[in-house]
Design a binder for these strands. Structure first.
Length: 893
DNA sequence: GCGGACTGCTTACCT
DNA sequence: ACAGGTAAGCAGTCCGCG
């Protein structure tokens, strides 16, 4: 064997492929040259000041993992290259003896050697011997379209095996994990945490003050088992350690295109970059402008601290921008992956800049930096979990303008003219504002966005670049992978989990869904005073914890566990060993509920600390909210439908039990949805009895979430209005709050809301009803005499789910309008918002820009007004038709 | 040819 | 590329209607 390997090795030496040639050379000449000119790469020195692990990647030239460390005092990035000799690998159930028969494997250029390893197989529930196939290059394992080691093995082995074997019996594990992630797991490194360099090694820095907190947290959780406490401690350490200030620059570029409505193709980069704005945390504020023939100076004023610089040469301008990109540890853009950085890179090369002088690493789906860390805010804010759970759905369009308006009250500057027609100062002002908004989006609430990314990097063990670009299922997958590696557990393949644990057993209510979900209690219509809303904080994560759910524990191998059945399903759960998911998600939930949430409101703490704790609890919330759903998503690498199904089934069981119990205690339940109960005028005694019973019998906490002065229900589920003690109003699900309805109707609805907020007693309702009738009547009359201020107030605003051509089954109204817009040459894609009004003539819709007042179909709007208000009116005992003054006879006609 | 009953599609919401 | 459940409006289809 040793003999053979030596031969193979010399074969590689003798005939290197072109591809391998460049890969194999460490620190090429280009890097050496760069090092002379701008001290690149910036190698981390011994005794480097404490620095944050912000990124890791595989450096193909060096053939090693590269860790980027951010030193916050100097505001610089330092590089640390692996010096442990760690190599890429995958695992297989074939023995070394068998594998040696596979010629294509042994002769593979990237193949290095075999090792024997012992792992715990989580599906077989025992230890197994596996062979580790070690490679010289991560791409040799997987990642190339053809001829990768992970594909060769099942392809070739059946041909050379002594005994018949099918490709399905041949297992390859852990071959799809990115190499730098694999490295992070194996070396137990913690992205986002603070490191020092001692004896050339990366050493996690320990801070006395923070360790004291960790100890304090451990003492808080008296009821936790030792095993649980280990997980709590691990999470607590990751979350407690402080965050730095982020030295960073936001960048925005403008390109001079002949067609202003179309985005120029960055791959061609055919048109000049004529303005670039830079807005940095260290007060550098610059606008770089390209000099052009016949352009006027203009008289727009920029803030005094902005330096406006003119360039005669576009190349010089771009080089000035590149100097900034070689300098800042963090670069912020809005859509820089697909546009700004990509365009800069290609344009520079078109103008003759050498690739090695371009500070941008252009990838297929992203653009990273050779020096620092690029955060593309578009990708971050596009993330649905971030949008909904971190920012409470406050922005809707993922545009700089809409996010800016919603989160920081800043909007883009608008000009009537196209960019090419602006004066220098107009252009400067426009471009500068974009950079300013992008920067401010990372600055508000104590650099919330930067810190969220940092905390998520810690939870998921991912580089900040990746965590800001990928979805919540990757974050969850990665921390589960990390824990598998840490414990020597084989990371199972998705198809093996599915084969071992099977699919679901319940029938969903909604056609096309995989299993039955939550219960929604039929509401009791009417106005109800003094309504207490009780809920289970993080019900599903709690269930995962208490019921020990995970892909290993569900339908486990022990016969004695079969009796531990999940209600309403044929599934059972292990009683002998805790599942990783249960421990990880459970401890994260406990930390959020019992530590971070209270800490974020604790009066004794400084505002800075409260804000930090609030960021942590927000990040954890995002993870917890998705922690059940991922098991039911077939795109998730640890997809396990019975786990998701069991979680939902236990949720149904839980709320059903509470319903019965509440009835026994004589409490009227007005409504409930999934994990909540709306109780009519309960006594303190009744509430505490219900709480105690839940704690004892179900091992779950049940809290009073809020108390409504009164709540209004119709007969519709997921539709209600509640007025809190302080007069603020919760509106749930009602058409009046949906964002696609015309502003005209929304305004009337909001007026009604304001009026209802003032109602304190049942007696107050008499006058309120009269006032509300007046609001509706007024709205109706104005519609009738076409007395709206602006036609756009009548526009419906509906998001295109797909490109207009792709609607083949039906043509909804907003698609009809979209197709009309397209005729006028404007491009539309999925995600665009379509504004249209309803008109009398076919096809009954018109884009708002093309419509006139007189063609509006008033009756359609009155119908919409009617249905919007009906949702509240019938509970108040009012009738729309009576309000607008129709007699019973007139209604007939 | 037209309208009502029905189903299915689509979006926006709730937990 | 987290899940399922609900409401609403409209598009399209089928069927009866002399």
């Amino acid at each position: 064997m040793a003999q053979r390997r030596l031969e193979d090795f010399s074969y590689i030496e003798a005939k290197p492929s072109k591809e391998n040639e460049s890969k194999a050379l460490p620190l090429t000449e280009t890097i050496a040259k760069e090092r002379e000119t701008r001290a690149f790469p910036p190698i981390a020195p011994e005794n480097l000041q404490p620095s944050y692990f912000v990124s890791a990647t595989y450096d193909g030239k060096a053939g090693k993992v590269l860790v980027k460390l951010y030193e916050p005092v100097s505001g610089k990035i330092y590089f640390w290259y692996d010096n442990t000799g760690h190599m890429p690998y995958c695992l297989t159930n074939l023995s070394q003896y068998d594998l040696e028969k596979i010629d294509r494997l042994i002769k593979h250029l990237g193949f290095d050697h075999f090792e024997l390893a012992e792992k715990f197989d989580p599906l077989l529930n025992n230890n197994v011997k596996v062979t580790k196939i070690v490679a010289r290059d991560p791409l040799a394992i997987g990642g190339r379209p053809k001829g990768c080691i992970r594909d060769i093995i099942p392809e070739e082995f059946p041909k050379v095996s002594d005994t018949p074997i099918s490709p399905e019996q041949i297992k390859v594990w852990e071959s799809k994990i990115k190499y730098y992630q694999s490295y992070i797991y194996d070396r137990a490194l913690a992205p986002g945490m603070i490191y020092e360099i001692k004896g050339g090694k990366l050493i996690l820095k320990s801070m006395e003050e923070t360790e004291k907190n960790v100890k304090c947290i451990k003492e808080t959780f008296k009821d936790a088992t030792d095993e649980e406490l280990q997980f709590i401690e691990q999470w607590a350490r990751l979350l407690e350690y402080p965050a730095p200030k982020f030295r960073r620059v936001a960048l925005d570029i403008e390109v001079l295109t002949p067609i202003p409505t179309r985005m120029p193709d960055p791959r061609e980069a055919a048109y000049p970059i004529f303005c670039v704005s830079l807005y940095a945390s260290d007060r550098q504020r610059r606008v770089l402008l390209l000099k052009r023939e016949g352009v006027r100076e203009g008289n727009e004023r920029l803030p005094a601290d902005v330096s406006v610089e003119y360039f005669n040469s576009e190349k010089k301008l771009i080089e000035a921008v590149f100097d900034v990109l070689w300098n800042y540890p963090f670069v912020i853009t809005f859509n820089g992956d697909d546009f700004d950085l990509r365009y800069l890179a290609y344009r520079a090369m078109n103008l003759g800049v050498r690739k090695s002088e371009v500070p941008i690493e252009v990838g297929r789906r992203n653009c990273l930096l050779k020096y620092g860390v690029h955060i593309d805010l578009y990708k971050f804010f596009f993330n649905r979990s971030i949008q909904i759970y971190a920012f409470n759905n406050r922005y809707r369009d993922v545009t700089l303008d809409d996010i800016g308006k919603a989160l920081i009250k800043m909007e883009k500057i608008r000009f009537e003219k196209s960019l090419g027609e602006l004066t220098y100062t107009e252009l400067a002002k426009y471009c500068f504002r974009d950079a300013e908004i992008a920067f401010t989006l990372t600055n508000f609430e104590d650099e919330l966005v930067m810190k969220l990314v940092l905390v998520l990097a810690r939870i998921s063990s991912m580089p900040m670049e990746d965590v800001s670009r990928q979805g919540v299922s990757r974050w969850i997958r990665n921390f589960l992978h990390r824990e598998h590696r840490k414990r020597g557990i084989l990371i199972p393949n998705a198809e093996d989990i599915l084969a071992a644990k099977g699919k679901t057993a319940t029938k969903a209510i909604i056609k096309g869904k995989k299993y039955k979900g939550a219960i929604v209690v039929e509401p009791i219509p009417g106005v109800h005073f003094n309504v207490s809303v009780m809920d289970f904080p993080s019900l599903y994560p709690s269930i995962i914890k208490v019921w020990n759910l995970g892909y290993q524990s569900i339908l486990c191998q022990h016969p004695e566990c079969h009796k531990n059945l999940v209600p309403d399903t044929p599934h059972w759960v292990c009683t002998k060993k805790r599942a990783l998911e249960s421990l990880l998600i459970g401890s994260l939930r406990d930390l959020r509920v019992e530590w971070y949430k209270p800490k974020s409101k604790e009066k004794g703490l400084s505002a800075d600390l409260r804000s930090w704790y609030n960021i942590i609890q927000g990040a954890v919330k995002v993870i917890l909210n998705a922690s059940y759903g991922v098991f039911g998503a077939d795109s998730f690498d640890l997809y396990c439908p019975p786990v998701a199904e069991a979680t939902a089934a236990i949720g149904r069981h839980t709320i059903t039990q509470i319903l019965t119990r509440a009835e026994q205690l004589g409490i009227q339940v007005l409504y409930g949805d999934t994990d909540s109960l709306f109780l009519k005028n309960p006594s303190k005694e009744q509430i505490s009895q219900l709480s105690k019973w839940t704690e004892q019998e179900l091992k779950l906490s049940l809290d009073v979430d809020k108390v409504y002065r009164y709540a209004v229900f119709s007969q519709r589920k997921k539709n209600y209005l509640g007025v809190l003690e302080d007069g603020s109003v919760d509106v749930k699900g009602l058409t009046g709050k949906k964002r696609h309805i015309p502003l005209f109707i929304k305004k009337a609805f909001d007026k009604m809301k304001e009026r209802l907020a003032k109602v304190k007693t049942p007696a107050d309702f008499e006058q309120a009803k009269k006032d509300i009738s007046e609001i509706i009547r007024d709205c109706y009359m104005r519609l009738k005499r076409r007395g709206w201020e602006n036609l756009s107030d009548l526009a419906f605003n509906v998001v295109l789910g797909e490109e207009p051509e792709r609607y083949t089954k039906t043509t909804p109204q907003h698609v009809k309008a979209a197709r009309i817009i397209k005729e006028s040459g404007i491009e539309l894609k999925a995600g665009d918002l379509i504004s249209f009004v309803k008109v009398v003539k076919e096809p009954h819709v018109k884009p708002v820009e093309l419509a006139t007042n007189s063609e509006v179909d008033i009756d359609k709007y009155i119908g919409y007004l009617h249905s919007t208000f009906d949702q509240v009116l019938d509970a108040l005992g009012l009738d729309f038709d009576e309000i607008i003054g129709l007699t019973k006879l007139e209604r007939f006609m």
